[in-house]
Design a protein around this nucleic acid. Structure first.
Length: 744
DNA sequence: GACTCAAGTCTTTTT
DNA sequence: GACTTGAGTC
């Protein structure tokens, strides 16, 4: 068969391996996705029905990628494979089997915001101090427990967890966990971890259901196996138990999700649970130059715990790795932008051949500004998702509540939106009435008079009538028509339409865009069905990495290293190579964590094909203050022979007419020195006195636009400056974080 | 109950 | 810098 041509020996072995468990240890750039696709194609060519194949990935993007590659090899049959993320595939199964574990198939999926909000509510009800019980921490602990399949009951009975909670001074955590689960159940809702946890429960308690899926799926594939947690592993293990045709692909050196419960131990468990496992190692790297492969190897060699592996390449030696030192985060941005500009000019490169990778999303700002200044188009992946925006969540909440009237979080969002005179106090009364009478929120809302009296009930009755009509619509109409009706009849669209500010306009357009997306979903023949609930399910599992609109456009990519996994670029910039930032300060508590950070660095390096540039800044704004930074320890771990320091002697045009006044709170701090030399002066400096900003000066504020400073007041007791500025006769008071551009 | 302004809080990564 | 909370006013 022609697709076997051009494969190396181990690749060919992996593709043609017949029945029985298979583990592929795939080094970075070793053609993993290719092998995986060909293997599935190979099976289908031998007559395996695509309906009997389940392929699990970690991101929607990876699933789409696999599907489209398969389609190229085997045609549209590929669509019949059950391919998707763990969360999407098993939420689909849970939807079918929901009744068996006490949910209805209309269950809602709570995202992280909903989960946090529910925890906040519970903490308040239990009168626990949210300064001690940090919401993030509570959710993290609950999530870890679920990922290890520890139920709330088991948690409370475990001496170990109890001791740990006592030691962390959160002794009530078990109770919070238990209440949290009860509330989810009452809301007919699951959080992300529940989708996996409940699948385990389903398979454990209903052998007939398990049998059904064991019989259905003859072949299982798990991509990025090193990132599976116990909960995910057990599901796949159970389904594969009968046919034993399970193929896992992974690389322990690229395990970067331990914080989410991923367990490299699974690689060892797999060999124990499937003793006949055939192991294939893919070690030849086809992606990167020798310098890049060698540098990556020299870094990962510092890790103690890893599987024996020898990644090598026959590619050319290539450019040395470049190291750029910048004096500030903003200068880092402009140096990188310049470097991209130069490369484009010198070598006719396209924007989409470049990627800027960073540790945290917050770092993107400086690069965005610098690229914009140079007129280089970019796309930003991650950060705040389209689906996290307020106006989008609002409409989605309406839709969720239309489908599932037990959904407490959706209810709280929409009950008084647009304003209909139902304030916090009334909502609190509803909640209390529901609790005291052992009713659901909806039962109280649908019939409020006995609990709240006539006066308060009127607006609530209007609300419940509205929802009832929405629900009736959803039964007979498809997702798009229902959503369009809800957007209009709820008053959401009208309210946004009346807001004539720039932001209001953007929000209105966003809602229209959501409606377009729903239309697209309804029109797409691959959607399972056209109902609103089916759309909501798919939309709840989308992440910020999924909502790119202009994918094809020629743009520089900006993203975190985590979201870069599985991708490759001609020229990669890894920026912010500073101690405490990368490796992250929070990760330095243990050796294991440091090793995970190092693997993250390894992942970043191995994204590069031809050229790799590292950079760090000597000063950086964090916590709203200027900090001095040390170069990252990881820089020293790269063998010096693969690197070269770029002398930062290029000259830049000085922007004399623009300067930033930033963060006047710190006016007592020493001003940042801006040497009047060939170096680009940092465009940021701290105002050391009022002389840089004077009354009557014309300024530009990023949000409010052009205006004139009318007064500056440094006399406030807490050292904060008040700057007033006037715009079109309208006075605006700016607080300490005023960031004004001065046009002289 | 709705709105405004000011102060306080928090920063890792993602399904 | 972004977001939440709290106090004060209408």
């Amino acid at each position: 068969m022609n697709y076997l041509e051009g494969l190396n020996e181990p690749q060919r072995e992996a593709v043609t391996h017949g029945e029985g468990p298979l583990m592929i240890i795939a080094g970075a750039g070793s053609g993993k996705t290719r092998v995986l696709t060909y293997r599935i194609a190979h099976l289908m060519n031998r007559g395996v029905d695509p309906f009997r194949i389940m392929a699990l990935t970690f991101t929607n993007k990876a699933a789409d990628e696999m599907r489209s590659r398969l389609e190229k090899v085997v045609g549209t049959d590929a669509r019949n494979i059950w391919a998707g993320t763990f969360h999407s595939v098993f939420s689909r199964i849970l939807r079918i089997e929901a009744q068996k574990i006490g949910f209805t198939s209309q269950f809602s999926i709570y995202d992280t915001d909903d989960a946090k909000s529910l925890i906040r509510t519970i903490l308040k009800e239990m009168s626990l101090d949210d300064k001690v019980y940090r919401v993030n921490n509570v959710l993290y602990r609950i999530s870890s427990a679920k990922n290890n399949l520890i139920s709330a009951e088991a948690y409370m009975n475990s001496a170990e967890y109890r001791a740990d909670d006592e030691a962390s001074r959160v002794p009530e955590l078990g109770k919070v966990y238990k209440t949290y689960q009860e509330r989810l159940r009452r809301a007919n809702a699951m959080d992300f971890d529940d989708l996996l946890f409940n699948t385990n429960v389903l398979f454990r308690d209903h052998v007939d259901v398990l049998n059904k899926y064991q019989q259905k799926f003859h072949y299982m594939f798990v991509d990025e196996f090193q990132d599976t947690n116990i909960s995910q592993y057990l599901i796949t293990k159970k389904i594969a138990a009968v046919h034993q045709n399970i193929c896992v692909v992974g690389d322990d050196a690229q395990s970067i999700y331990a914080f989410r419960g991923a367990n490299i131990q699974n690689i060892l468990n797999f060999q124990r649970d499937f003793p006949d496992t055939r192991i294939v190692k893919l070690e030849q790297n086809y992606r990167s130059t020798q310098n890049i492969v060698n540098a990556a190897n020299s870094v990962i060699a510092k890790n103690k715990s890893q599987l024996q592996k020898n990644v090598w390449t026959a590619n050319e030696e290539g450019n040395k790795i470049e190291l750029i030192k910048a004096s500030s985060d903003n200068e880092e941005g402009s140096l990188i932008a310049n470097s991209i500009f130069e490369e484009k000019m010198l070598y006719q490169r396209h924007n989409d051949e470049f990627a800027i990778l960073y540790r945290t999303n917050a770092q993107s700002r400086a690069f965005e500004e610098a690229l914009r200044k140079k007129n280089i188009k970019y796309r930003l992946i991650g950060g705040v998702s389209f689906y996290q925006r307020k106006e989008i969540k609002d409409l989605i909440s309406y839709l969720r509540f239309t489908i599932n009237q037990s959904d407490e979080e959706a209810f709280k969002r929409i009950i008084n939106l647009p304003k209909r005179g139902i304030g916090d106090t009334t909502v609190a009364k509803i909640v209390v009435a529901a609790m005291e009478n052992n009713l659901t929120l909806w039962e109280v809302v649908a019939n409020p008079k006995p609990y709240l009296g006539d006066r308060l009930s009127a607006p609530i009755e209007n609300f419940s009538a509205l929802i009832k009509s929405f629900h009736a619509t959803s039964v007979i109409k498809d997702a798009y028509e229902t959503a369009a009706h809800v957007a209009k009849a709820s008053g959401l669209l009208k309210e946004l339409h009346e807001d004539k500010t720039v932001e209001g306009l953007a929000r209105y357009e966003n809602v229209q865009e959501l409606l377009n997306a729903i239309k697209e979903y309804v029109d797409n023949p691959e959607s399972p069905d056209k109902s609103l609930s089916s759309f909501l399910q798919s939309v709840s599992l989308l992440t910020s990495a999924d909502d790119e609109k202009d994918d094809k456009a020629d743009r520089v990519t900006l993203m975190t290293i985590h979201s870069a996994k599985g991708l490759e670029f001609k020229h990669v910039f890894i920026v912010g190579m500073e101690e405490d930032l990368f490796p992250s300060q929070m990760m330095l508590s243990s050796m294991a964590d440091l090793e995970e950070e190092r693997r993250l660095f390894y992942v970043a390096i191995t994204r590069a094909e031809h050229k790799l540039t590292l950079s760090y800044a000597e000063t950086r704004y964090r916590f709203g203050r200027l900090q001095t930074c040390e170069p990252s320890r990881f820089l020293k771990e790269i063998d010096a022979s693969y690197m070269r320091m770029t002398q930062n002697t290029r000259t830049f045009e000085t922007e004399r007419n623009t300067s930033f006044v930033k963060n006047l709170t710190t006016r007592k701090a020493p001003p940042v020195t801006t040497p009047a030399t060939t170096h680009a002066p940092s465009t940021n400096f701290i105002a050391s006195d009022t002389s840089t900003l004077t009354v009557g000066m014309k300024v530009e504020h990023p949000k409010f636009g052009f205006g004139v400073v009318t007064s500056i007041d440094f006399s406030t007791p807490d050292k904060k400056a008040k700057i007033k500025f006037e715009k079109d006769g309208e006075k605006t008071l700016l607080l300490s974080f005023a960031k004004l551009m001065i046009h002289e």
